[in-house]
């Protein structure tokens, strides 16, 4: 039997259906906790605060300002608020809490008392965090984008559907997803390795802030570097 055939047989023998069900069970519990707990209100604030400002801007400055100017403002908000602060701190909160939260609330053992592979549990938890962060920040970015161009009426619609607008939106959303995956996996790993993941998180924040002024080879070791490439 060739190596490939053996691998195929091994893969076919795995209880994929059971694992899928177990991941779904972990996901359901975590999504409820992440979206509906009062503790998570601040993440909503982080994700939707710019939407409020842009809505105010749409109301107050409805007869002034240019689309070009607003595009630059939106780019600034995305790069400096969402990418460097909102998604960073949001993912820090969501992903470090996935396991550390269970440890703090002394409820992790309930997962360990179920016939779940540790890898399946980890995957389920990570996907739960990812769905939460992508949904909240993706919606935040989408709503910010929509509110920014909606006030321009037909010109805004034209910019989105016939101009570069749609590509710009997709790029923002793509970078948001990548940022959630990048920061999420880093923070999940830190929360499993360190009892106090905030200290390494501060170092990550410092690193992400100062790498742009470092040589390009060093810049490649930061998440922001790759996100900028995508942007």
């Amino acid at each position: 039997m060739t190596r490939l055939a053996r691998l195929r047989t091994t893969l076919a023998e795995q209880p994929w259906e059971l694992w899928t069900r177990q991941i779904a069970a972990v996901l359901r519990m975590d999504l409820r906790k992440n979206f509906l707990s009062r503790r998570g209100i601040w993440i909503y604030l982080l994700a939707f605060a710019p939407v409020v400002i842009i809505t105010l801007h749409a109301i107050i400055d409805r007869h002034s300002g240019s689309m070009r100017e607003d595009t630059e403002v939106l780019a600034g908000i995305f790069q400096f608020f969402y990418l460097r602060l909102g998604i960073f701190f949001g993912c820090l909160g969501i992903f470090t809490w996935l396991f550390r939260g269970e440890i703090i609330e002394k409820s992790l053992h309930y997962y360990f008392l179920a016939p779940v592979k540790r890898e399946v549990l980890l995957l389920g938890k990570f996907v739960g965090g990812l769905v939460t962060s992508v949904t909240l920040f993706g919606l935040g970015v989408f709503a910010s984008f929509a509110m920014m161009y909606l006030r321009f009426g037909d010109a805004g619609q034209y910019y989105i559907f016939n101009g570069p607008g749609m590509g710009q939106l997709l790029a923002y959303l793509g970078v948001t997803v990548l940022a959630c995956i990048g920061y999420g996996s880093v923070f999940l790993a830190l929360s499993l390795l360190f009892k106090n993941p905030v200290i390494p998180a501060i170092l990550v924040l410092g690193w992400e802030t100062f790498t742009p002024v470092l040589p390009s080879l060093v810049q490649r070791f930061s998440i922001t570097y790759y996100l900028k490439q995508r942007n």
């Binding site: 059971l18 069900r21 177990q22 779904a24 069970a25 972990v26 359901r28 519990m29 309930y110 997962y111 008392l113 179920a114 016939p115 779940v116």
Partner: peptide, 10 residues
């Protein structure tokens, strides 16, 4: 219920 779903029950 959640624990049982973790067991893989429908």
């Amino acid at each position: 219920y959640n624990t049982l779903r973790l067991h893989g029950l429908d």
